[in-house]
Design a protein around this nucleic acid. Structure first.
Lengths: 349, 349
DNA sequence: CCTCGAATGGAGAACGTTCTACACGACTCC
DNA sequence: GGAGTCGTGTAGAACGTTCTCCATTCGAGG
């Protein structure tokens, strides 16, 4: 086995050290830390002083064996999607002066990998989980949520075992369609994630979006001119979708992409084909991420208030973790259209 | 105290259950899991079968009390910087079929917050840490690294207690200056992070970049025309820097930004001032992130091979964690210039 | 047949917390 | 003056692993 001998020595300060130093029992120290009932003023002070003096930091793994671990896990499929960064900021802000630490599991798009990551977080005894639009089968989420407080962001399927934070994607799609129709567009395409009703989720965000889109088109009497194309919410996915839609026979005059990243891929495809935006094609993104507002981009987009969603998710989660609420709840946000320079009246045929 | 009664019941399958089910001792099961010495073929199979049958998953917190936790922590300051996403992908890829799980601590720019996050990861007994350009004082990193294997990405300061992966930022700056000078530019400005030699880091990436920039300018006899402006590597930071530089008295004809995000902020500032890129101003980014290649952007940038850096970091870290190497090492990458449409010859005065 | 050593399996002590019981004293109330 | 009650503190049993010893068996060598 060779030399081994990792350098991990210099032993930690433990609760026992603190207890001895303060001249009390470990139980007392534990109580102080969790500010549990039954501790006198004097005890409080003595113990806190000892902790400070020894620079004591509780051993999270040991805590995990019995009680809390004071860790919140966040699952996201794609670090590059800036919308998730907004949500994350919200979560971190809400938790910033609590004792909880936020750790992120970045899992990629694969359902298996996501499931593995979720299990890893549960195995590490995290106190609560925020899952952003998980691709994992619903049954798996439900069984995990039965044992660990969970907030699901994005999926419209509600449940009595986990909380949800969603955006009214159907309303968002409606806003976009209204805007485009008002500009004079008739042939409008939607590019949405292929997700579909897989894994027993009945209403993942992309389905809600697609439904809202079709309803809105119908409302304007354009049901037969609506087109839906599926592709991954990534730059490459958008690029492929853009090429397919724009070089096809019946070219739409406007495209709504379910994510800003994908919209930028479509932008690239349009450029490849020599089409200008918004001259030839109007383009709308979704999520109103930072890139949408960049000078060279100026993408019309739907704002989902990711930051606020993160705040709400964290608040709801902590309520559950600390047992202040025992019934599932659902929070719905209303989207808002932000018009920029990527949409205009269609050019005459 | 109300009802409390969190739902966390339905007890887990433990090593004891597996042992009983396989008719062996827990010690034996543990040995099989860690494939330690002293296990017969038959025992192997019996135990593995039992584990599979019961769907056993080891309890990470309990493991953390004695041995490994099979968790690698990654610290990054800003989820929005796509370069970090590249690094992260590299790390995840290298670790994808190992037993290690990667968890990310997103800490923001503040040194305190970063320090807190690092401590949180150490307290959770993570087996190893990858720190991407930490702003935390060097001493703190060194003391953490003494107890937990650590790879630092970005800082050029080497150490015998942690490994490092860096990019030759000075070379990168040289490539850019050469390119710009060749196009005919003389008045070139650098926008770099304010980091400076704080916290006892002698050579954080921004300093290496600035030094390389000044040296390259000097090499071309342009030392007196070089300007360095400090701002945060963010969209807003770039915007502010852009406004300052471009509306000031002696306007540069080209700007190098230390991060693509910041370059986009400068882009926005230029637009605000009615200046076109590359007509009036040439602009170069750093890191060659995905946004740099987007159709509407087309930013000339320096490629740092973040993905490869991530791979290297993970490989080095695991060597240390598993005790296969006990001396610190350092890996240096060579940057490459990717010319796009944001640079051109300067307009005549 | 005895001794040795290698190979294999198990007992049981950690590890650092939390938390349930319980002990003790001081009051209050009949 | 005894029975409750309240407030405060402690003992000690978990929790689910890892890992150091130790026990047993088996073969080989003498």
């Amino acid at each position: 086995m060779a030399a081994d001998s990792s350098p991990r020595d210099t032993k930690r300060v433990t609760i026992t050290d603190v207890a001895r130093h303060a001249g009390v029992s470990t139980a007392a120290v534990s109580k102080v830390m969790r500010n549990a009932y039954g501790v006198s003023q004097g005890m409080q002070e003595r113990v806190r002083a000892a902790m400070a003096e020894l620079e004591y930091r509780p051993h999270a793994a040991a805590r995990g064996m019995r009680g809390r671990t004071y860790t919140i896990g966040v699952l996201l499929d794609n670090v590059r999607n800036a919308f998730f960064a907004d949500v994350l900021d919200g979560i971190r802000e809400e938790l910033s002066d609590s004792e909880y630490t936020v750790l992120i599991g970045a899992a990629g798009f694969g359902a298996d990998e996501q499931a593995r990551t979720i299990r890893a977080m549960v195995d590490r005894q995290m106190d609560g989980l925020v899952l952003i639009a998980p691709g994992t089968p619903r049954s798996e989420i439900l069984s995990m949520a039965a044992t660990t407080p969970t907030v699901v962001i994005g999926h419209h399927d509600s449940s009595d075992v986990h909380d949800s934070v969603i955006d009214a994607d159907d309303v968002g799609a409606g806003l976009v369609v209204d805007h485009l129709v008002e500009l004079g567009h008739r042939d409008i395409a939607l590019v949405s994630a292929p997700g579909s009703r897989s894994g027993r989720w009945q209403r993942p965000p992309e389905i809600a979006l697609a439904d809202g889109f079709l309803q809105a088109m119908d409302r304007h009497g354009l049901a037969d001119r609506a087109r839906v194309h599926h592709s991954a919410y990534s730059d490459d996915g958008g690029h492929a979708a853009g090429l397919a839609l724009l070089s096809g026979a019946q070219r739409p005059t406007a495209i709504l992409a379910g994510a800003d990243v994908a919209a930028l891929g479509i932008y690239r495809a349009a450029a490849d084909l020599g089409l200008s935006i918004p001259g030839d094609i109007s383009l709308v993104g979704y999520n109103n991420t930072a890139i949408a507002s960049l000078a060279p981009v100026q993408l019309t987009s739907v704002d989902q208030a990711g930051h606020t969603m993160g705040l709400a998710a964290a608040r709801m989660l902590i309520e559950r973790v600390e047992g202040r609420r025992d019934r599932a709840m659902q929070t719905t946000m209303t989207p808002r259209l932000v018009v920029r320079r990527s949409t205009a009246a269609p050019s005459l045929p």
